[in-house]
Simulated assay, not measured.
Amino acid sequence: MKRIGALLVVLSLALTGCETKPSLQKYFVENSDNKEFLAVDISPSIINVDKVALSTEEKKALESFKKMNVLAFKADGKNQQEFDVERSKVKEILKDPTYQELVKAGNGKDGAAIYFVGDTDHISEFVLYGCKSENGFAVARIIGDNMNPNDVMALFGLMKKGNIDMEQLKPLQQLMGKP
């Protein structure tokens, strides 16, 4: 009986002593109600392809897409210090080996990058990050099942080809200053 009690104490100490590393998912949850951020969840229904003939590749891409989460920080003259802190947090999270860099463009502070989680044929998440010092930054998580880079390219093609549900994008339009 004492052994079981000692084992439970050791197990509970081990579990409570574990460090939880930061992740984009945690970052999104922590900041979704922050007034400096805009959080938008986009469902696959944004791509309205009811009247569009889809290729086999496009059907596969659409079926693998589950949702997209967008978190954006709008920079202005009043929140530059907070902007710098939050941008650093996101960059630090994206340095984790979980997020594999696919493409990067731009310089140190301004630019864009695409990351993925998983292996090249079984990707569970694509991460799009873009930052422009005077405007702010945005992080988009495209979440799906067994995606690959071709699937994401097919999804972007479908967005052009299909009828986009602009209602889901209204919060982002407001962030960019469009009515």
Score class of each variant (00 low, 15 high):
residue 105 A to N: 12
residue 52 V to L: 08
residue 47 I to Y: 00
residue 46 I to E: 01
residue 87 R to T: 08
residue 129 Y to G: 01
residue 134 E to K: 09
residue 28 F to Y: 07
residue 84 D to G: 12
residue 36 E to P: 09
residue 36 E to L: 11
residue 128 L to N: 03
residue 135 N to R: 14
residue 115 Y to T: 01
residue 176 M to N: 07
residue 76 D to K: 06
residue 42 I to C: 00
residue 78 K to H: 13
residue 25 Q to M: 09
residue 77 G to C: 04
residue 113 A to D: 08
residue 175 L to M: 15
residue 31 N to Y: 13
residue 113 A to N: 04
residue 169 L to H: 01
residue 44 P to A: 00
residue 102 L to K: 10
residue 142 I to M: 06
residue 21 K to Y: 15
residue 17 G to H: 05
residue 5 G to C: 10
residue 152 V to G: 05
residue 31 N to D: 07
residue 28 F to G: 00
residue 97 P to H: 11
residue 37 F to K: 06
residue 122 H to Y: 14
residue 85 V to M: 06
residue 144 G to T: 01
residue 2 K to E: 14
residue 173 Q to Y: 08
residue 20 T to Y: 14
residue 13 L to S: 07
residue 1 M to H: 11
residue 25 Q to P: 07
residue 30 E to F: 12
residue 71 L to E: 06
residue 28 F to L: 02
residue 60 K to E: 15
residue 177 G to I: 10
residue 88 S to L: 12
residue 120 T to V: 15
residue 148 N to W: 05
residue 97 P to N: 08
residue 160 K to S: 09
residue 48 N to T: 01
residue 147 M to H: 09
residue 142 I to W: 03
residue 132 K to P: 11
residue 76 D to G: 13
residue 107 N to G: 15
residue 40 V to N: 12
residue 100 Q to F: 02
residue 67 K to F: 10
residue 111 G to Q: 08
residue 146 N to P: 04
residue 40 V to Q: 09
residue 14 A to Y: 15
residue 60 K to I: 11
residue 83 F to Q: 04
residue 146 N to H: 13
residue 96 D to C: 02
residue 16 T to A: 11
residue 61 A to V: 06
residue 67 K to H: 07
residue 15 L to S: 08
residue 90 V to H: 06
residue 26 K to Q: 13
residue 5 G to W: 09
residue 90 V to Y: 00
residue 123 I to W: 08
residue 64 S to N: 13
residue 119 D to Q: 08
residue 150 N to V: 14
residue 64 S to M: 02
residue 123 I to H: 01
residue 143 I to Q: 15
residue 165 D to V: 05
residue 147 M to S: 03
residue 18 C to D: 07
residue 112 A to R: 01
residue 77 G to W: 12
residue 4 I to A: 06
residue 85 V to Q: 13
residue 27 Y to L: 03
residue 57 E to D: 15
residue 24 L to N: 02
residue 53 A to M: 04
residue 97 P to T: 14
residue 3 R to W: 12
residue 128 L to C: 04
residue 33 D to H: 08
residue 137 F to A: 05
residue 7 L to H: 06
residue 161 K to D: 11
residue 158 L to W: 03
residue 104 K to H: 07
residue 167 E to C: 03
residue 12 S to R: 00
residue 94 L to C: 00
residue 66 K to T: 10
residue 48 N to E: 09
residue 151 D to M: 07
residue 130 G to P: 06
residue 139 V to C: 05
residue 46 I to T: 03
residue 1 M to V: 11
residue 19 E to Q: 11
residue 67 K to C: 01
residue 160 K to Y: 05
residue 25 Q to I: 12
residue 62 L to C: 02
residue 68 M to F: 00
residue 135 N to V: 10
residue 179 P to E: 15
residue 92 E to L: 04
residue 121 D to T: 07
residue 153 M to T: 15
residue 8 L to M: 09
residue 21 K to L: 14
residue 41 D to T: 15
residue 172 L to F: 05
